[in-house]
Design a protein around this nucleic acid. Sequence first.
RNA 1: GCCCCCAUCGUCUAGAGGACCAGGACGCCGCCCUUUCAAGGCGGAGAUCAGGGGUUCGAAUCCCCUUGGGGGCACCA
Length: 502
Amino acid sequence: MSESTRLSPQSSVLSPQSSLLGPRLRIAPSPTGDPHVGTAYVALFDLAFARRHAGQFVLRIEDTDRARFVEESERLIFDSLRWLGLEWDEGPDVGGPFGPYRQSERISLYQEHAEHLLGSGHAYRCWCSPQRLARVRKEMEARKEPPKYDRLCLGRSEAERRALGEASDRPVVRMRVPDEGLTAFDDLIRGRIEFENRLIDDQVLLKSDGFPTYHLAVVVDDHAMRITHVTRGEEWISSTPKHVLLYQWFGWDLPAYAHFPLLRNENRSKVSKRKNPWATLRWFRDNGYLPEALLNFLALLGWSMPDGREVFGFSDVVEHFSFERVSLTGPIFDLNKLDWLNGHYIRQLSLADLQQRLGPFLERAGLPVANADPPLTKILPLVQERLKRLAEAPDLVRFFYQPRGEYESALLLSKGLDVATTKDLLGAAIERLRAAKRFDAEQLEAALRALAAEREVKTGQLFMALRVACTYSTISPPLFETMAVLGRERVLQRLEDAESRL
RNA sequence: GCCCCCAUCGUCUAGAGGACCAGGACGCCGCCCUUUCAAGGCGGAGAUCAGGGGUUCGAAUCCCCUUGGGGGCACCA
């Protein structure tokens, strides 16, 4: 078996499978904590494209950086992506024919490939210390030259190199980039992109701890896992020529590339977990965004439906996605529009669904969920169309369960009414409500409108006083329905309480 | 500093030479509905298509330059 076939699992490991005929895409997050929205953004289109063309979507964990590794993140990644509804066909937890799907479990594969490049002269060992590298880089920059490694170690034996000083004990393996020529690739979204080889750095492929860098690992894995379309953020464009070179040296076919625009924050820089609290998927979940709304919104960033529809689901993306319709500019993440979309989806929810989704938020706020009195099925219809985010629900619902509220008694005084009049009105209202035959919205409205008319006050004046008394706020769901849900006893109690505050 | 990518209303976008003195959505403003807040309906303001050169009978659409923005330049991904 020749060296190159040994390195090319494609020819031996698997027998042809019909399921492998379609495209294969992957999302490859690093386990550095809560996954970034950008990860979901790209994954959404990956999955859509894979589904559209009957291919596969793969999840691979790129855990080659032990320093940045965060213990729980793998679970966080699984949870967040699944919450959004993005399911993978192959991955560390579900397995698949090209595993393992964690790079830390494939170290020897990368080492073999580095060895291969060393043998073919496309790579060399480097003993330069980090200090020296930093110094060299600085010097080059001062000379206004592209900052690159100066190749001090190229062509030298370990002994020769050590004699020169500033060497560390364990070498790295660097790729040996050609001095001349051009390396180019065709991006599905941007077209042809070219780089001059002389400007490309001799990238480290294998670190001194034996782990690969991203550059070696992606290429080896994408090939080994038969990835046909490499999708990722625009930030990777400038390292792509290095990857292209590796494919060439290994004698492998190049995958298609698609670099998505970078999601940006309001200052136009890329969204980062450091600067933007909403950069993680977890944030959206915790703040009560519906996964279908987030997904819809993400699909609207940098992509649009051919027919211009703005409200659509994942199946519509599957049906219509194409790389050609992805725009080139990095969209600013507009939470405002997301809120609108989220509110739209919330209004669409069935009562039962809404109640279920609200459960965790109400519980967290210490509000009753099961056996609540008044029951949520009565309350939720009143707040549903007022919600933009599920997390707002507790504040809208709380007053139903608070026998006594905190509010300025002055709020009870509607414009143009003095204390005595208001007190009198409240007293009269109490009487009417006590006498009301049925305590439903219709009856209440009739009775109270009549009262306002008799006392010659504007309905709004009376109603606002009652609203504050019953809901402890000048802003509330419709008054009579609210009163009906509260029930006679609670309403009378609150009105009496209000009366006594004046 | 060097390299790369990008450029249509505040924001997301439609637009792939004539159908555009540029369409939609969010936001904003006004009116209607109305007991508050929402939701909903109707209407409005908002882009000399970054600027300048070309190409063409004709350019938001093609080319070049300038400017602006972004990204990359680690033994991080």
